[in-house]
Simulated assay, not measured.
Amino acid sequence: MLLASFFGLAIGLILGLTGAGGGILAVPALVLGLGWPMTQAAPVALMAVGASAALGAVDGLRQGLVRYRAALLMALLGGAFTPLGLYFAHRLPEDLLMGLFSLVLVLVAMRMHRQARGAQGVAAEHGWQQKNCMLDASTGRLRWTLRCGLTLAAVGSCCGLLTGLLGVGGGFLLVPAFRQLTDIRLHGIVATSLMVIALVSLMAIVGAVRAGVVIPPAGGVFIVASVLGMLAGRIAAPHVPPRALQNGFAGLCLLVAAYLLCKTFA
């Protein structure tokens, strides 16, 4: 229980500091820290990330930042594809799942490092005219074109598939996809992504429980501790230099990915 509390607080703190993508380390914390198999760790990690995301989404709704129509569309498609991810998660070898998860961690680390160097911001400035989803200047709302709807549906589907397969909330995919494909401001992107994560995680958790996954008491402790850690992280985030935070998170992802690969295939 003590270890579950420690890792829960640590993951919540990282989630609060880094935003929607920080929850990707919840599964490694349970697998490496508590020795759980990935199929057991994934639903507990989703509960922790989903609960934290729900708090952020409620705050975003209160401030009027959430693009709720876009979030609902993506969550519906994500919920539809989550069972497919769960299906493969329970049939693929554990070693393959670990390898896929490590690859995702490496990709997240690379994106964070590029973001710290400011590369994404430069790309966004030069590519704004090619955005798939644009805001209407007169209303401030998204223009619901066929292209925009298909784009959001595709991103939501991928998010749901990865949520079911690897037990990740999908923030590492949603935030950069929103930044690349829409002209929504960053605060709105994060708030909308948190709502999608909360809804898709809830659907994935229901599917996992119906499939017979049992949440042990240590899992409940981990979830509660992660929520408390997330609240502490959100308070501390404004006082931490963003570049140092992004580089630190990228380095941590690479270390965890390397350790996972060594533990799995050594």
Rank of each mutant, 00 (worst) to 15 (best):
L3D: 09
L9K: 03
L9M: 09
A10G: 09
I11Q: 11
L13N: 07
T18Q: 03
T18V: 15
T18K: 01
G21D: 06
G23W: 03
L25D: 08
A26H: 10
V27P: 06
P28N: 08
P28V: 10
P28W: 05
W36D: 03
P37K: 09
M38G: 02
A41S: 13
V49P: 02
S52W: 03
L55M: 12
V66C: 06
V66G: 05
R69L: 10
L72T: 14
L73T: 10
M74K: 01
A75R: 02
G78Q: 03
G78W: 02
G78P: 05
T82W: 00
Y87W: 12
H90P: 00
L92H: 06
L92V: 11
D95Q: 12
D95H: 09
L97R: 02
G99R: 03
G99E: 07
L100N: 04
L105H: 05
M110P: 00
M112Y: 06
G118I: 06
G121P: 02
A124F: 07
G140R: 01
T145S: 15
R147M: 09
A153R: 02
G156W: 04
G160R: 02
G160E: 04
L161V: 08
T163Y: 03
L165P: 03
L166D: 04
G169V: 11
F172E: 12
F172G: 12
L173E: 06
A177M: 14
L181C: 10
I184P: 06
G188V: 08
M195V: 06
I197A: 01
A198T: 04
L199F: 07
V200L: 02
S201A: 15
L202Q: 03
A211H: 10
G212W: 07
G212Y: 07
V213H: 12
I215T: 13
I215C: 07
P216H: 06
V221Y: 08
I223T: 15
S226H: 05
V227F: 13
L228C: 15
G229F: 10
V240C: 01
G248C: 04
L252A: 11
A257P: 05
A258T: 13
Y259F: 12
L261N: 02
K263R: 14
T264S: 12
F265K: 04
